[in-house]
């Protein structure tokens, strides 16, 4: 029935397992080394500080300043987190503390669907709904002239995209807090809101920070949806109604022409390396927050 005997099958299976495991375990290092080797051409000619803080982006004349893209990415990410953070925190508290069990059973599929919608579809929705809303209603209402394609539009679409991600972590965290803690506070005469404010949130704080950090890292690297609504103008944005440009959008927009200009491909790989570094850094730091949270 089998080609090999039991011992041989065991050897084949466990060898394959170990090979797979090594591949996966070295993946982050492989990514880092691969992108570094590609961008070393650029790093050889320019210093790291120059690349990050110089403001001119003219690949055809050899000027690679990533500052506008980095600033654009930070704007979009921070504004998105300002929307996502309170919404997720309030919702997570509401569904874990105030509602009956069945409500979570409605919320979970809703969160799953939000998480499953592809980023291009989010981008399309942004173009259909958010961009016209900003240019036709919000802008004129505030007395600002705007195209609609702006930091704000990108941040709003992005904030919706990371809600399922952050909310899932927060719900898990609030559910893992032992009930005794809550009962103790209530028995001392605290109201439900006082218990939440002074006991639950305080206990969950490292976890909450970690959830926001993971969300931030995710938002920083989001490409297609942001690319479609952010406006893609290489300029330092002055307000959220200005168009901007982000690092992932830079890579995605220029892949076609990157082999025609010298060092251009190297510059785009450097942008990818920056994204990788930011993502790894945030995830590393937040991981330690989670570890600390679990120790309590």
């Amino acid at each position: 029935m089998y080609l090999l005997n039991r011992a041989q099958r065991h050897t084949v299976n466990s060898t394959w397992m170990i090979i797979s495991l090594l591949l996966v375990a070295f993946l982050p290092f492989l990514l880092f080394i691969g992108l570094y080797l590609k961008s070393v051409l650029l790093l050889h000619d320019y210093s790291l500080g120059d690349l990050i803080f110089s403001k001119t982006w003219k690949p055809s004349s050899g000027k690679f300043g990533f500052y506008p893209f980095i600033v654009g990415s930070i704007w979009v990410t921070v504004v998105a987190m300002l929307i996502t953070a309170p919404v997720c925190l309030l919702t997570a508290i509401y569904v874990t503390q105030y509602t009956k069990k069945y409500f979570l059973r409605i919320m979970h599929p809703a969160i799953d669907i939000l998480a499953g919608i592809p980023s291009v579809v989010y981008g399309l929705w942004g173009i259909l709904v958010i961009v016209p809303f900003i240019s036709r209603y919000l802008g004129p209402w505030l007395g600002i002239r705007t195209m609609g394609y702006s930091i704000l539009a990108a941040a709003f679409v992005l904030s919706i995209m990371i809600i399922p991600f952050v909310l899932n972590i927060l719900i898990e965290i609030f559910r893992s807090i032992p009930t005794e803690l809550k009962e103790a506070a209530l028995s001392l005469g605290a109201t439900q809101w006082q218990t939440i404010k002074h006991v639950l949130v305080k206990k969950a704080l490292p976890g909450i920070i970690a959830a926001f950090g993971f969300g931030l890292a995710r938002a920083f690297g989001e490409t297609m949806a942001v690319l479609m609504v952010v406006g893609n103008v290489v300029r330092l944005p002055k307000s959220v109604f200005d168009p901007g440009y982000t690092l992932p959008a830079l890579i995605a927009n220029n892949y076609g022409e990157m082999l025609s200009i010298p060092k251009y491909d190297s510059a785009l790989m450097f942008a990818a390396l920056l994204l990788l570094a930011v993502s790894l850094f945030f995830n590393l730091v937040m991981h330690f927050f989670i570890v600390r949270y679990n120790k309590f």
Binding site: V24, L27, P28, L31, L35, F214, A217, R218, F220, G221, E222, T223, P248, I251, A252, L268, M269, A271, A272, L275, L276, S279, L280, F282, N283, L284, H287
Partner: peptide
């Protein structure tokens, strides 16, 4: 860590 890496980085 690997899960958190943006897909554009994989693309590059």
């Amino acid at each position: 860590l690997v899960w958190g890496i943006p897909s554009i980085v994989y693309g590059a």
